[in-house]
Amino acid sequence: MTALDFDIAHLLAGLLVLVSFMLLYQDRMFALLNVFALHAIALSLAVGWQAWIQRAPHLYVTAAIALTFKGLIIPVALHRIVVRLGIHRSVETVGGIGLTMLAGIGLVALSIVVMLPVTAVASSIGQEDLAFALSVVLLGLLMMVTRRNAVSQVVGFMSLENGLVLAATGARGMPLVVEISVGFSILIAFFVIGIFLFRIRERFDTVDLQALDMSRGEQE
């Protein structure tokens, strides 16, 4: 394994972090979905590169799943759902974009501070990879808490899950990686079908979770 291999792996993982930041400030639904597709493509490149340098052909399956399922099928499906639900105008963000970006930078700094000293001793393939993966996971979490809309929460969750797949492929020789990525895809399909069914079958007036809170039993 050469230094160039590492550099390219870091480049691709860093690209994923960058796209995570781009997700944070999207306030248009369609733009959000497009950037997410980019996120998934960046992931499939990163995973594909790991498969190449680790000589682990099964990881190509994971990369292919990321590319076709998360990069193509899910964004297209969500796109159609957004149109059907009539929520394509804008995405409200809680707390403002500037503050969210600052929090995101803080989280990335945190994950680098936490992961780099820890993994320095471990002979893993790329310790920086793990720090990047944790950054993506934390940025996904941040996105889930700052968004109120069900569709953008799902996008936040999917970006978080991309970070997990990155971490799992970075851990050399880890078993069950492909199975886990398939499992996650099924989970996401559940999410998407869930949003779709709630609206179409049960005639929900909104997928805004703040409005859903009102229907809880505790308010009188």
Partner: peptide, 23 residues
Amino acid sequence: PAALEAAWKYFILGSVGIALALF
């Protein structure tokens, strides 16, 4: 609506739990 909201909340929070446990 209340059941769906409960299921959705469980789904989202449970998934975050899933993700952290996997990491």
